[in-house]
C-alpha cells in the first residue's frame, strides 16, 4: 500500500487536489490554483536551470509575455482561451528562442547578466508601451468561456489549471526521459563530451530556452486567470527570484522538486503575514540556506531518506552544483 503511494505520488497529488476542491473555501481554492500555476512555471525553470545547467534569470519576463499575450488575445480579439493559452506559450517560446540564440554565445555566468538585462527590457516595454499594455495601470483579464459557460471563479478555473498542470508535468517527464533530456544533462556536465558524442550543444541550449520559456508562457497565461488583473509588477525581479527559490528549495533536476517548492512557497507568504518585507527576507534566507546546506533540495533529501522513490534516471542528479560526497570506491579519483 505504502509502496503504491510512493511510486504514484504525483498522480495521487492531482487526485487529492481534485478531491479537496469540493471542500475548499474561495481563498484556499485561489491558493491551490496559484500553487499549480507555479508548479508549471517552476518545472520550466527546472528544465533549464536544473537539467541543462544554464543560469537563465528571465522567467518572470517569459511569464509576463505569456500572461499579456493571452490576456490581449482574449480582450482585444475575442480569441477563445483554448487558443490563447497555447499561443501564449508559443509566443514566450519564440521570444525564448530569440533571446536564446544570441545568449548561447556568452559563456557561463555572463548569461545571468544578459538574461537579467532582457528581463529589465521586458519590464520597460510593459511599462512604456501604453497603447497595448496600459503601462502600470495593468489590464483586466476576461473570464474564459467554454461552450457558452463562463468560468468566472476559482472553483471553475481550477479544472483548467489542474488539467494543464497535469499535461505539462507529463510532458516534462517525457522530455526528461527522452534523448533531449539526456542531452540537457550532457551539456550541463560536460560540453566537450556531449559534442564528441554527437550532441549539437548550440541547438540543445536554444531548445532548453524555448521549452523553458514555453512553460513560463503557459504558466503566465494560467496566472492571469487566477489574478483576473495583471500589471508589470506581477512579473518583476521578485517573481523571478521566487521561482529560483521554488526550484532550489524543492530540488533542482528532480521532477517532483517543483511540486514541493511551489507548494511551500505559495503557502509560506500566508504564514509570513503577506508583508512584502518578511516575504523577501524569508525567501532570500531560504535560498541561501538551501544552497549552502541542502543543495539537493527537499526532493533530494526525501529521496535519500527513502521516503520518496528514486526518479527514473534523474533521481541521482543533484543539480550541477552537487556532486555526491559518498563514494563507494572512487577513492583513487583525483
Amino acid at each position: 500500500m505504502l509502496a503504491a503511494v510512493r511510486s504514484n505520488i504525483l498522480p495521487l497529488f492531482f487526485v487529492l487536489l481534485f478531491g479537496l476542491s469540493f471542500t475548499t473555501d474561495a481563498y484556499a481554492q485561489y491558493l491551490i490554483n496559484l500553487m499549480l500555476v507555479y508548479v508549471v512555471v517552476a518545472q520550466g525553470l527546472n528544465l533549464i536551470l536544473g537539467f541543462a545547467g544554464m543560469f537563465a534569470f528571465a522567467h518572470g519576463a517569459f511569464m509576463a509575455i505569456g500572461a499579456y499575450v493571452s490576456a490581449l488575445l482574449m480582450n482585444k480579439f475575442g480569441v477563445s482561451y483554448l487558443v490563447a493559452m497555447p499561443a501564449a506559450g508559443l509566443a514566450a517560446a519564440l521570444v525564448g528562442c530569440s533571446i536564446g540564440i544570441p545568449a548561447i554565445r556568452v559563456s557561463g555566468l555572463y548569461l545571468a547578466m544578459v538574461t537579467m538585462g532582457f528581463s529589465e527590457i521586458v519590464q520597460w516595454i510593459l511599462r512604456n508601451w501604453k497603447p497595448v499594455t496600459s503601462g502600470t495601470d495593468g489590464i483586466s483579464v476576461a473570464s474564459p468561456v467554454f461552450f457558452g459557460v463562463e468560468l468566472s471563479d476559482d472553483f471553475q478555473t481550477f479544472y483548467i489549471i489542474l488539467a494543464v498542470c497535469a499535461v505539462m508535468t507529463a510532458l516534462a517527464q517525457f522530455i526528461i526521459r527522452s534523448r533531449l533530456g539526456r542531452a540537457f544533462v550532457a551539456i550541463r556536465d560536460s560540453e566537450i563530451a556531449a559534442q564528441s558524442s554527437g550532441i549539437n550543444v548550440a541547438r540543445t541550449k536554444v531548445l532548453a530556452f524555448a521549452i523553458s520559456a514555453f512553460y513560463a508562457g503557459v504558466g503566465g497565461s494560467l496566472f492571469s486567470l487566477t489574478q483576473h488583473y495583471i500589471n508589470p509588477d506581477n512579473f518583476n525581479l521578485y517573481q523571478t527570484i521566487m521561482q529560483f527559490c521554488m526550484v532550489i528549495v524543492g530540488g533542482a533536476s528532480s521532477l517532483i522538486g517543483p511540486f514541493i517548492g511551489a507548494t511551500i512557497l505559495t503557502w509560506l507568504p500566508e504564514l509570513l503575514r503577506n508583508a512584502q518585507a518578511f516575504q523577501e527576507i524569508g525567501f532570500g534566507l531560504l535560498l541561501i540556506v538551501f544552497v549552502i546546506f541542502v543543495p539537493k533540495g527537499l526532493a533530494g533529501l526525501l529521496i535519500d531518506k527513502g521516503i520518496l522513490p528514486r526518479e527514473e534516471y534523474s533521481s541521482r542528479v543533484r543539480g550541477k552544483w552537487v556532486v555526491r560526497k559518498e563514494r563507494a570506491e572512487g577513492s583513487e579519483r583525483t
Binding site: A186, A193, S196, Y313
Partner: peptide, 29 residues
C-alpha cells in the same frame, strides 16, 4: 561524431551523476 569519429579524453568526461547505462545512451544520440 555522427559520421563515425569517437574519442575518449585525458581526464574522463562522463556524466558523473548518471549510471553506466545512461552514459552509454549518450553514445547512441
Amino acid at each position: 561524431a555522427a559520421l563515425g569519429i569517437r574519442r575518449t579524453f585525458q581526464t574522463v568526461q562522463l556524466v558523473q551523476s548518471f549510471t553506466v547505462y545512461e552514459n552509454l545512451l549518450f553514445g547512441l544520440h
